[in-house]
Write a protein that binds this DNA or RNA. Structure first.
Lengths: 219, 219
DNA sequence: CTGTTTACGAACTAGATAGTTAATTAACGT
DNA sequence: ACGTTAATTAACTATCTAGTTCGTAAACAG
């Protein structure tokens, strides 16, 4: 019998140490911003020490970039498994919008990281080849839905896939990202349960209304 | 003849010192975030010293809150002078959306400050009575447009003013706030001139399409 | 012209913070 | 069993940063 406990609980385990650091770092960066997050605090919240952060990640910035990469990788994994193309175009785009809504609603930390990265003019995301090189599958999906819908005559606009993606993302992102200032100014927590279902319907109606051309003719 | 120069250029001028500090502070907070902004750097970029920042504002946090208050005050001033209610409901809401678009497009620093404030869970905005107490006039405007449109039968949805405001803001805010990550991932600078006019039309078509109920019936 | 107030600047400080050094020990192949 | 390497710890440091101390002089009222 060795000193090693049963279920892979080694005292020294590079993978689990790295994973734990990343998990805590994600929370801390999301909560305090890049400059506001403290390496000491991240270390204190793990079962390991600050030295390990530098051992595995080299610097605060590289740790942050790794957190970003991991967060985006998870998003892409979800997008990869989305299958809405068996639906009729209108239902397909509506479903995609609702899935985007659900995803944003469920991944608050990711949204904060994206906000933070934009405050810093995307200087870190640009340093990550992993992020810049890989495109996202979602644009292809939207493109095909748009083509099908236009062919059928369901969609009147010659809408652009990137624009449509932006429109959907904007709605889903905003209600989570700006919940605090919006709440303070308008006295409504957009992310509260009582608004969720209604707003989820809204994204679908918005995007379908737009694509059908309901706002098109100027009169 | 005194030593005082002609055009109000006194060597000591509390108002202009305060104003200069606020102006520089806004840029610095917007560019680096709350924690990332440096009081020393702000001071260095003014014609005065760090001591003056503490003399007039007391602390980094109070300086930041004052910057926020000033930024919001400017927005409210614009909103206050908006007059779209003489237009027919559809044109009124479309015009409001386009004005919101223009305003967000022109006030990048404001958008960054709002993003920063949300990263900090709105903890500073809540400390400002000036911001929490005063509502915004825009909700009233939208409400009246919605009522008029519903009465006429132009708008089918019993849409809520706050929701509509959110939908418009989301689109206008997102394309500016997230331009860097979006640009890095999709290779398109949403805020580039060549996309501006098209996206401006999009907001209007989106909101009108939604309010007319173009995405409503599920089929 | 003079005393008081308001505005200002230079230099300083205590504590925080990213990053390091160097010694230690667990794991693993042989 | 044993030497090598990978993983880990504790303590340290140089620098930065928000906030302060103290002294000075312009502006202004009488």
């Amino acid at each position: 019998m060795t000193s090693q406990p049963a279920t892979g609980e080694r005292r020294r385990d590079a993978d689990r140490t790295k994973a734990e650091i990343l998990e805590v770092a994600q929370r801390e960066f999301a909560q305090h911003g890049y400059a506001g997050a403290r390496v000491d605090e991240i270390a204190a919240l793990t079962r390991t020490t600050k030295r390990m952060i530098y051992y595995y990640f080299g610097s605060k910035e590289r740790l942050y970039i790794t957190v970003l990469e991991k967060a985006y990788a998870e998003v892409r994994e979800v997008e990869r498994t989305v299958d809405v193309e068996h639906l009729a175009p209108i239902e397909a785009i509506r479903t995609l919008a609702e899935l985007t809504f659900d995803h944003h609603d469920a991944h608050r930390d990711f949204i904060k990281l994206v906000s933070i990265e934009n405050i810093h003019q995307g200087e870190h995301i640009r340093k990550s080849e992993a992020l810049v090189n890989l495109g996202t599958p979602v644009l292809g999906i939207i493109e095909r839905i748009l083509d099908a819908g236009t062919a059928r005559g369901d969609f009147v606009t010659g809408a652009d896939a990137t624009d449509v993606h932006m429109m959907i993302s904007a709605f889903c992102f905003f209600r989570v990202a700006n919940q605090h200032t919006f709440g303070a100014l308008f006295g409504r927590d957009m992310t509260a349960p009582e608004h969720r279902a209604r707003q989820r319907r809204m994204v679908g109606e918005m995007i379908v209304g737009y694509l059908r051309g309901g706002g098109g003719d100027r009169a």
